[in-house]
Design a protein around this nucleic acid. Structure first.
Lengths: 204, 204
DNA sequence: TAGGTAAGTTACCCCGCGGTCACTTTGACA
DNA sequence: TGTCAAAGTGACCGCGGGGTAACTTACCTA
C-alpha cells in the first residue's frame, strides 16, 4: 500500500511529468509557429518554458522529436475536428461546415495550423512524413467538400481537381495567416467574414 | 585610343562581370527558392554557379545583399508585368488579366514568386523592407481587381476587403506552389485551368 | 534523519555557416 | 615578353545552435 504509484511521484521536482510535457509543447508550438521550423531554437523554447535545454532533450530526445510531438498534437486535433464536421448532408454545405470546423478548432490555437503546414520542413524524413500524413488527411477531407462545390462540373481534367484542392488549402492558410495578424477576431467572426465573401463570389 | 574601355576588360578572367553577376543571381534564386531564405547557403550558391564563396562576397557584399539583389530582380519583373496588365477596361476582367500577367511573367521563372513571398524572411530590416515594397505594390494592384469582382457588394466591413486581398494572394501563391510541382504545365495551361475553375465558382 | 533515485542544471563539445585575409592566376597592354 | 591590376581561390576565424556528460538539488521511503 502507498507504493503502487511510487514511481510516478518520486523525484518529482516542482511539477508532474505530464504537466511539464504539455508546458514544453505549448512553448515549442509558439516558438516554432512564430519563427518556423527552420529558425526556431530549442534554447528559446526552454527559456519560454522556464527550464533549460537538456531537460527538453530528456523529454523529447531531439529537436526533431520535439517538433514531431508538436505536429502530432496539432495535427490530430485538427483532423479530429474536421472529421467530425463531415457528418451531415453531402451537398454544398459540407465545404462550409469543414471550414467552420477548422476555424473553431483553431480558436486560441491559431498557430497549430502553421505547425502542420510549415514550409521550411525538410523534404524527407520522419518529420516530413508525419506532417504529410496530417496534410494528406486534411486534404482528403477538404477535397470532398471542394468536389461537391464543383458539383457535376466533371468536365475538368483530373489535375483540375488536384489543383482545386491545393487552392482550397492555400486559401484557408491565407485566412489563418490573416487571422494571426488580427487576433482580436473570434472564430465566429472569421466564419461570418468568410460567409459574406463566399456569398459574393458564389451566388447560388 | 584603345584605352577608353580598358578598365572594363582588364583582368577579366573567363567571363565579363555583368554576365557572371546574372549567373550568380540565377544560382542564388534557385537555391533560395528551393530551401527558402532561412536554409539557403552561400556555399551552395557558389557551387551551383561554379565559383567559390569569397567571389560572391566580392560581388554582393553579404548574404543579405545577395538575397536583396534576387528579390529586386524578381520583384521588379513581377510588378512591371502586373502593372502593364492594368491597362484595359475597369471591370471584372481586370482580375483575370492580372492573374494571366502573373502566370506569363513566371513562365520558366516560377521560383521568382517564392523569393518575394518567402515566409522565412526576417521580420524587420532592409531585406524585409524591400520585399514588403514589392508585396505591397502587387497587393495594391491585386486589390483593384478583387474590388471589382466584389463589385458593389459594399456591404462588407473594411476588414473584409483586406481579408479578400490576402486571400487573393494566398490563392495565387498556392497556384504557383502547385505549378512548381507540375513544371510540365505551361503558363497558358495554368491560365485555362484557372479560367475553368473560376467559371464553376463564379458563374455570371 | 539518512540515503537513494529521479529531476534538473552547468559547462562543455562539435559542426556548419557567414564572413575575411593573404595569396595565386589571368589577361590586356607596352 | 615582362608587368601590373583585376579576378579568383584556399584556408582560416567566430559564433550560434544542436546535443551531451557530469554534477547538484529536491523529494519519497524506511
Amino acid at each position: 500500500m502507498g507504493k503502487q504509484n511510487l514511481a510516478r511521484t518520486v523525484g518529482t521536482k516542482g511539477m508532474p511529468r505530464k504537466e511539464r510535457e504539455q508546458l514544453i509543447l505549448d512553448a515549442a508550438a509558439e516558438e516554432f509557429a512564430r519563427k518556423g521550423y527552420a529558425r526556431g531554437s530549442t534554447a528559446e523554447v526552454a527559456a519560454r518554458a522556464g527550464i533549460t535545454k537538456p531537460l527538453i532533450y530528456e523529454y523529447f530526445k531531439s529537436r526533431d522529436g520535439l517538433y514531431l510531438a508538436c505536429v502530432i498534437r496539432a495535427g490530430s486535433r485538427l483532423v479530429a475536428a474536421v472529421r467530425s464536421a463531415q457528418e451531415g448532408p453531402s451537398d454544398i454545405t459540407r465545404a462550409a461546415r469543414t471550414l467552420e470546423a477548422i476555424f473553431r478548432a483553431l480558436e486560441s490555437r491559431v498557430h497549430d495550423w502553421a505547425l502542420v503546414y510549415d514550409s521550411t520542413l525538410p523534404a524527407e524524413g520522419e518529420l516530413h512524413d508525419a506532417a504529410t500524413v496530417y496534410r494528406r488527411e486534411l486534404n482528403r477531407l477538404g477535397a470532398a467538400g471542394v468536389a461537391e462545390v464543383l458539383g457535376a462540373a466533371r468536365a475538368g481534367e483530373a489535375l483540375d481537381a488536384d489543383l482545386a484542392t491545393h487552392l482550397w488549402y492555400g486559401t484557408v492558410s491565407a485566412a489563418v495567416a490573416w487571422w494571426r495578424h488580427h487576433p482580436e477576431q473570434s472564430a465566429e467572426d472569421m466564419i461570418s467574414r468568410f460567409a459574406r465573401l463566399s456569398a459574393v463570389l458564389h451566388p447560388r
